[in-house]
Design a protein around this nucleic acid. Sequence first.
DNA 1: TCTAATTGCGAACACTGTTCGCAATTAACG
DNA 2: CGTTAATTGCGAACAGTGTTCGCAATTAGA
Lengths: 239, 239
Amino acid sequence: MAMSSKDPIDIWLRAEQGSAGRKPEHSRASIVQAAVKIADDQGIEAVSIRKVAAAIGAGAASLYRYVKSHDELIELMLDEISGEYVLDPANGAEGEAPQRALLDLARQGRQIMRRHLWSAPLFLSQPSMGPNSLAYLDFALSILQETSLESSAKLRTAAMLTAVTSAFVQNELPLHPGANHSPVDASARAAYMAQVLPTDAYPALAAVMAEELAPVNLDMEFEKIIGTYLQGAGLSERK
Amino acid sequence: MAMSSKDPIDIWLRAEQGSAGRKPEHSRASIVQAAVKIADDQGIEAVSIRKVAAAIGAGAASLYRYVKSHDELIELMLDEISGEYVLDPANGAEGEAPQRALLDLARQGRQIMRRHLWSAPLFLSQPSMGPNSLAYLDFALSILQETSLESSAKLRTAAMLTAVTSAFVQNELPLHPGANHSPVDASARAAYMAQVLPTDAYPALAAVMAEELAPVNLDMEFEKIIGTYLQGAGLSERK
DNA sequence: TCTAATTGCGAACACTGTTCGCAATTAACG
DNA sequence: CGTTAATTGCGAACAGTGTTCGCAATTAGA
């Protein structure tokens, strides 16, 4: 009441607006979905207010009736795809080892980030607080409930789990044929490497590159990395 | 020779330009340093071509004589601060355990990212190829040389090491007093949490938040996280 | 001295996020 | 039923962005 400015974070509280007035022609959900589709197809940088507005057949300024800012739109997008997690309570069952349940969560996260390539870096920098993100966090914490970790350690373990997943996805992408969102394309990088390596300025790097890179099984690597990370996190001891 | 367009990635090859002509009033190094300073003070979003140009007393368009694009400037910034690593050969000595040497590297990385807060997310998304970045990579690989890992595993271990470090720094920042680069400020988030938690929609989260969060020793957590990650990476076996 | 190459940079273009003001629409109230 | 108040849609405008172009200024070598 006494606050001079409206609450800055009504993002997740703001209801879909009350009774009187012209009825809205769009919805926040459809806008976010359109934005996600654009990001999937053309990269995150293509997600501009004007393009999203055009995608749903609206004027640019109209979007601000549903979304407060561009940053908020991106936060909504992140929460949207966080809804793709399948939080099956069977995975959190008491019988299950926490490791397995968390590994499953990480697997899902990897798939989600691969479906939405733009999201991998963002999951790192943006600690989202939307309902889907909170549901995910809550689920991960419920799994960790069975361990003897301190609550702060639980929180960080959950956060680091998605962080490591995001890092892995980020690193596995260049090895794949897919799209090329790098500032400079990969072929140029390769040519550059070939030109700079013989300088024997980077002997260890040259040695590694010299070996024929056996086609890596990324799935197995992922399992191993997450598995060993969880093992190291000290979940083994039951409460 | 037959290439129609100039090589796209002369970023690191382009010499500081030959003999004849007006002598440059600036240098790529000074530009990058100015950009880093701006990012340190005002955040990465404040690093615009015009602001950097103004900082060194130049016209906006002049920057393009030293830097090909905004993206390239940021890549140069990343390589610049990668030069802050102290790659002491003593750490890579054969007697040292690889784990210790890599842990030291991660410690340095953490400090660098804390000095340049904007860099933590970027280290994730941008696989830089500048001389300093390559020197760092080469050093890490030379440490891993003593292990029995496959070369692809070596590469990914090195990449994941900085990735995990970046993730940790990203997660430890909100716990610190420092600057606030989040889309919405932390106090608002806290208020929101307080309002949404009693909904008992997130019981595990509520349970964790209820416990008094003992002031965490971030340094110790870092050591543990990196240590256990390296332990799981399978470095233990000597070659 | 002339020539060729290089830098500096104002001006412009195509974008971007965001705000403002106003017309159009709708629900509720008297 | 008419009036009022609230809400949406959105064209226009503003400030800021990355980038390109053309030209003047400067410099080294022929």
